[in-house]
Amino acid sequence: MSAVDIVDRPPPPPRGWPRRRVLGYALLALWALLALALVWFLVTAWKPEIFERYAPSYVDGVKVTLLLVAISVAIGAVLSVPIAYARMSNNKVLAAISYAYVYFFRGTPLLAQTFLIYYGLGSFRPALESVGLWVFFREAWYCAIFAFSLNTAAYQAEILRGAIDSVSRGQWEGAAALGLPRWVTLRKIILPQALIVALRPYGNEIILMIKGSAIVAIITVYDLMGVTRLAYARTFDFQTYLWAAIIYLVIVEVLRHGIEWIERRITIHLKR
């Protein structure tokens, strides 16, 4: 008996039409039908004057969405470092304050936070005017950036903390044994390992921000959702929403695959 005969072969895939295959093809046919219906609807609803009028504003809307997310995520990344530091510090007061901050921003809806800043801070108008900050908080755009930055800072602080915690204590101890200062240890030993762990959550956070940023349309910022709402209110044409859905899906999918590609690249040395 040769070795080949002993090998346990995987069972052959079922042939013919078992029930689950029928179901699978039926569901795929349903999706295909929906996709065709979508294309058919968009083709028949195509009006050159609507396209000419609103296509430029959609492009602006995409730019506003991406800019808003980019600025907020960048500011949030800077803010998240001291918050994560405070969260991990041995100082009880610091840890409690940062815990409360993170808990508040992760426990309440982003929409409520945006309203609290955009409408709520109006209650302090005289005080804000006297320090010259009213110019800033009067604008929906700045309020949105402010609210989103504070929100994403809380989430990013947790990502950072989790990633640093995921590096084993032995790495710190090994570096200390070599006589490296803590700061150098963090920068050259801990962070490179932590950031690999953090990449996927960071990517998810950016995608969540892109999706979450749609709510700024409610406080009159003309991002992709905002221009869509405006176009719908003027034309009562449902294709305005469908185009927005397609654009959002494309943005999110491109980002998702981009992040997966980066992850494959930077973990190449871990593959065995």
């Binding site: 295959r21 699978g24 569901l27 999706w31 349309a217 719908y232 449902f238 859905a245 959002y248 899906l249």
Partner: peptide
């Protein structure tokens, strides 16, 4: 184990995880 079922499920997830919740709400409502 059926590839067509897997694909159908993945299409569902991809679409509704990629759309903003607010947009999904408007799509359903209007």
């Amino acid at each position: 184990e059926e590839a067509s079922l897997r694909l159908a499920g993945n299409v569902y997830t991809t679409i509704f995880r990629g759309l903003p919740e607010l947009l999904t709400l408007f799509l359903v409502f209007y």
